[in-house]
Design a protein around this nucleic acid. Structure first.
Length: 262
DNA sequence: AACGACCCCAACCGCCGTTAA
DNA sequence: GTTAACGGCGGTTGGGGTCGT
């Protein structure tokens, strides 16, 4: 038997794998590797397909909405990357995991605390998540403005989907059965609806949005954000990031860190 | 230009649960 | 009931790219 290949996949291998899956479907990866004459393990083929070649896989930076979902879902489930990724259309567990390790953990390190610490949780719920909401709100407003100014909008046009364009793009499906990701990213989802155009920054800031009865995220980030604006969290424990000021583009944690450092 | 430090991400590894023989 | 094969998951790592000196 030919020696198994390791390391980065070549374009030829990708083409072989993609064409074989197109012809025979996913699954039975070891058999697939043999039949397609790929000198790779079945595991390697599966990983390459799921993380890179599979149609619909999204690459590039996470949107504010996606970042918010990751933070929220990690609150709930911890390092259940696959489960979290299931609610992010087109994203893989590997991507979510890499995002968490490279971005989130880096910032926790900069703060000198652990990602699981209450201090870091406070920073996230007081600063990061509200800012992501602001960003989502701003993006939705921009999209709404663009829509309004587009050619011949119908007079009775429905309210703009709160999902950002790139999200709407990938959540589009011909299937009548919505995936968890599609349901989650739709306006019907409490978390997304609350993060969308229908929810003002002020509402976020002052916690006026209550958890809906039966809300799958009842008691989660919306509650945390509400709590963050009230007395049950000792804000004196938090560093002063100059949040009294409204600064354009103060959206990412990087920006917050910059505020702290200078 | 050269070098080292750091960052990011694709890919691998090891473990565990499931399934079929 | 046992065992081997397989698939899935989370943790880890190697290497290429970028940035600062």
């Amino acid at each position: 038997m030919a020696e198994l290949r390791r390391g980065p996949w070549t374009a030829e291998e990708d083409a072989l794998l993609a064409s074989y899956v197109a012809a025979h479907g996913e699954g039975r990866w070891n058999e697939l590797a043999r039949a397609a004459a790929l000198r790779r393990t079945g595991k390697s083929c599966r990983l390459r397909w799921l993380n890179y070649l599979r149609p619909g896989v999204r690459r590039g930076d996470f949107t504010a909405r996606e970042q918010l979902l990751i933070l929220e879902l990690h609150f709930r489930w911890g390092n259940r990357w696959s489960k979290i990724a299931g609610y992010l259309p087109g994203r893989t567990d590997n991507e979510v995991k890499n995002y968490w390790r490279t971005r989130v953990q880096k910032h926790a390190k900069q703060l000198g605390c652990d990602v699981g610490s209450s201090r870091f949780h406070d920073v996230m719920r007081h600063l990061w998540m509200p800012r992501l909401l602001e960003r989502i709100h701003a993006e939705s407003a921009t999209a709404a403005a663009a829509f309004t100014h587009s050619a011949s909008p119908p007079l009775d046009a429905p309210s703009l989907p709160c999902a950002s364009p790139e999200v709407s793009c990938v959540t589009g499906s011909s299937s009548s059965e919505a995936s968890p990701a599609e349901k989650f990213m739709s306006n019907d989802s409490p978390i997304v609806a609350s993060a969308g155009a229908d929810w003002s920054t002020e509402q976020c800031q002052y916690g006026s949005v209550s958890a809906t009865s039966g809300d799958m995220f009842e008691g989660s980030w919306s509650e945390l954000l509400a709590r963050a604006c009230h007395d049950d969290v000792d804000s004196a424990e938090l560093p002063d990031f100059g949040l009294g000021e409204t600064v354009d583009n103060l959206w990412s944690l990087d920006d917050i860190w910059q505020q702290q450092l200078y």
